[in-house]
Design a protein around this nucleic acid. Structure first.
Length: 212
DNA sequence: TGATCGATGCTCT
DNA sequence: GAGCATCGATCAA
């Protein structure tokens, strides 16, 4: 059954998809489908909001100091793998590793538009089912929420996002430049000048974006 | 509709 | 020991 659904989302991306400049990749991720198959079932959503973090050039990046740590190790590896970290004592955040091996860059997935497995997502998010329209918007419109809804945690750390149970599909059609908006990233006030860089990208007018 | 604040524990200094 | 790429509850308007 899941194979049928997956077919509607176009081809799975390949390894080469991730081998492009981090900003190009961040924009290209908008509109793709992220799917996670688990024993509980399939959940998937369309990527509608991302932020990029650029290593040594970027005070907001976990990799800013340039030295890999136990947490950030995968960020410095080859692109296309999952960088998952635990934050505020209760949430996970999912990133796509970008840039060549040895360079610590990544793209944070901030919001999805849910498209498959909504009941399972609601269960994981502890929301009542069936969902009202407000609750549907609340399913995956934030980095911690989407990780919870898709059941992403440290168990997915380092997974290749073109060939594992957690992977991207191309989606229907590429977005035009006019559909993509950009602005400063969220909650990085500690990062000085970098806090103002317009490194958050989202699909204009999409109701599942975390903020506008 | 928006501002404020507490929860909670890992990560790094 | 301090801080954190968040979320949800609560309160004011």
């Amino acid at each position: 059954m899941s194979q049928l659904s997956v077919g509607q989302w176009g081809r799975a991306v390949d390894r080469e998809f991730f081998q492009q400049d981090t900003e190009i990749l961040a924009r290209a991720l908008l509109g793709t489908i992220l799917a996670h198959e688990t024993p509980e079932g399939l959940t998937a959503g369309r990527v509608v909001e991302v932020e990029m973090y650029r290593g040594a050039k970027d005070r907001a990046a976990h990799s800013y100091r340039g030295v890999p740590t136990a947490r950030t190790q995968v960020m410095f590896g080859p692109p296309g793998h999952a960088y998952v970290y635990f934050i505020y004592g209760m949430h996970y955040c999912l990133n796509v590793v970008a840039a060549p091996d040895g360079v610590g860059e990544a793209i944070l997935l901030r919001a999805l538009e849910p498209i498959a497995g909504l009941e399972l997502m609601a269960k994981r998010r502890r929301l009542a089912w069936p969902l009202g329209s407000r609750a549907a918007r609340n399913l995956t419109n934030g980095p911690g929420k989407l990780a919870s809804a898709l059941s992403v945690s440290k168990a997915q750390y380092g997974l290749p996002l073109w060939s594992s149970s957690l992977r991207f599909y191309q989606g229907e059609s590429p977005l035009s430049m006019a559909e993509i908006r950009e602005g400063p990233r969220i909650n990085i006030g500690y990062a000085g000048e970098a806090a103002h860089y317009p490194w958050r990208f989202w699909i204009q007018g999409n109701p599942f974006v975390s903020r506008t």
